[in-house]
Design a protein around this nucleic acid. Structure first.
Lengths: 334, 334
DNA sequence: CTGAAAGCGCTTACAG
DNA sequence: CTGAAAGCGCTTACAG
């Protein structure tokens, strides 16, 4: 099964490689009709299929971009990926997805591999720990767009949720429904992880705004594996909360699991709102009130920004932060 | 920002390109220690990063495989993809995921594009409509593995669930709990779509096995958009079913949506089992009994089979069908 | 309207 | 132990 190359086609059709190449690239301006037909027939006869690798090597473009997500387990990541893929498919670009799994070393490795593969650009959900690498990408003027997390001091386009607003929407809604003892449940608060940091500060600001006191014991954050006991502890307080804001889908799942195991009822025993519009929010009993991120728009924006950078590589690096508005979807959990 | 190439490194280090290449490929057998160090230093100094494209062109391997799923919206697809990625990451392979979105033309386009990109192999969740293309891949001895759907007459490795068994497990469980009026809810039954066809026939066989009559009006299949009215019709029958088997996650969602809208209770008004272990099965109220596919094992197997084919291209095409066992996860929905 | 030639950035026998 | 040369399969000025 020898590979058919452009040279074989040329020989068979009795023309030069250049002419076949012109044909492949639709440059018919100066091509006689009969040459064109002859080439077409030969291609079909031989079953020729172009090797894009060779073209990419010459043209210095692979029409492929890379996406590295901090953790693919978050619904938000998967939704954004879908959006990015949609945009790319339209432009006949391919996407290579990599999951850093919250491990900075993996992220580093992926950045290197993708660049070695000559992808035309990168969209990063940064782990936040590889500052040097990020800096290098930017100073080399490599097309890159960040999403979900803000890296301080980096001069590059970043697409973010208005995280504080997300918490505000939730707390406002709780207050409107008469709740005042409102706790928050979050994954571990780490400095680089913008959504967690900002959603927590948004929660605090919202409480202040409603003149509710901030109780340290109502602020619960920890790893998935510790969540159950942390939540348990929360409910054992002498004055337990009557409402909980779960700041992402993973925390919400843990909370629901606890609620179910302990036969609590929503919203009678505990009101709740989750940030991230989980797939089952609608069909859950009761329906879950959520704060949705416009994941599709955010992914679309990230892709568009990246394409803009890919196209005008020379341009000075205009770095902008794009904040997207969350929306409250009221259902029955408070 | 000129690209640094192997030639630049060679010049700077005062050696030939060949020697640098040896270095890059860890062929140190005949390399003097000082040359090695000199090259290493030069690489760091210049910030050289190899262009894998050029290597791939020469070596005829991209260490990349392609995966084309019929529809990425099925949990099963996403689970299998995760497994494939895990296996590939271990071997330092990359994966390009494409979503045919149930459109055969898209599938066709993706097969062509991925081959043009010289991926080393392909894992296909086939739409079932591009028989000629599939046949071509196989007769060209191109490394390919099929998963989820069986294409009749194709001589190639295929990884499948024992779909009939999945239905059997569900029906058995219903019967054990005293149900006899058991309906089935499925996406449209199309000839090429193995899981749907086999799960339906499994349902019928299981009823027969338990000496229950098969009622045509209990067999409901249709597009997502028609599901609500189809389900409604089912419940309007003079003798409505007391149990429903949802043959995949999408059908289950529709069913739960209907159940909720109409304030039915599970399992009092209707018992149910879903094939596919949805993420919220555990935390749903009540917990949902499901039949789980060993998606991880199946993805792993597909990847392993593909790697085997990639490695021994000359081998005669031994085509085998691998059937995997589903498992019943009993919760509280019947 | 078409062809010969150089080149993209690597690897790989082969020679010495 | 290292280098010169050919080649992977394309594209792209340039010449005619």
């Amino acid at each position: 099964m020898k590979k058919v190359t452009i040279a074989d086609v040329a020989k068979h059709a009795g023309v030069s490689k250049s002419t076949v190449s012109q044909y492949l690239n639709q440059r018919f301006d100066y091509m006689r009709e009969d040459t064109k037909i002859r080439i077409e027939e030969t291609i079909n006869e031989l079953g020729y299929r172009p090797n894009i690798l060779a073209r990419s090597l010459k043209q210095k473009s692979t029409t492929t971009i890379g996406v590295i997500v901090a953790n693919i387990l978050h619904v938000f990541s998967t939704q954004v990926i879908r959006a990015i893929e949609d945009v790319c498919n339209e432009k006949d670009f391919h996407v290579i997805i990599c999951n850093a799994d919250d491990q900075p070393e993996k992220e580093k490795k992926y950045i290197d591999m993708l660049r070695a593969k000559q992808v035309d650009g990168l969209i990063l959900f940064p782990t936040g720990k590889n500052i040097e690498q990020y800096q290098e990408l930017i100073s080399e003027n490599y097309p890159v767009v960040f999403i979900d997390r803000l890296i301080n001091g980096l001069q590059t386009d970043t697409v973010l949720l208005d995280n504080e607003k997300a918490s505000f929407l939730a707390v406002d809604s709780f207050v409107k429904h008469g709740y005042s003892k409102i706790a928050v449940l979050s994954p571990p608060i780490e400095p680089g992880v913008t959504p967690r940091v900002e959603r927590l500060s948004g929660y605090k600001k919202a409480l202040e705004h409603h003149q509710l006191s901030i109780r340290e014991e109502f602020i619960v954050s920890g790893k998935t594996t510790d969540m159950q006991s942390l939540i348990h502890h929360l409910f054992q307080l002498s004055e337990p909360p009557k409402a909980i804001l779960a700041t992402n889908d993973r925390s919400l799942m843990e909370l629901l699991s606890y609620v179910k195991k302990n036969k609590l009822s929503i919203p009678e025993d505990i009101g709740l709102i989750g940030i991230d519009d989980v797939s089952f929010a609608d069909i859950y009993n009761p329906g879950l009130t959520t704060v949705a991120q416009p994941a599709f728009e955010m992914g679309e924006k990230a892709a568009e920004l990246l394409f803009k950078r890919i196209q005008q590589k020379e341009e000075p690096n205009q770095a902008e932060i794009y904040r997207f508005e969350p929306t409250l979807i009221e259902r029955e959990s408070l």
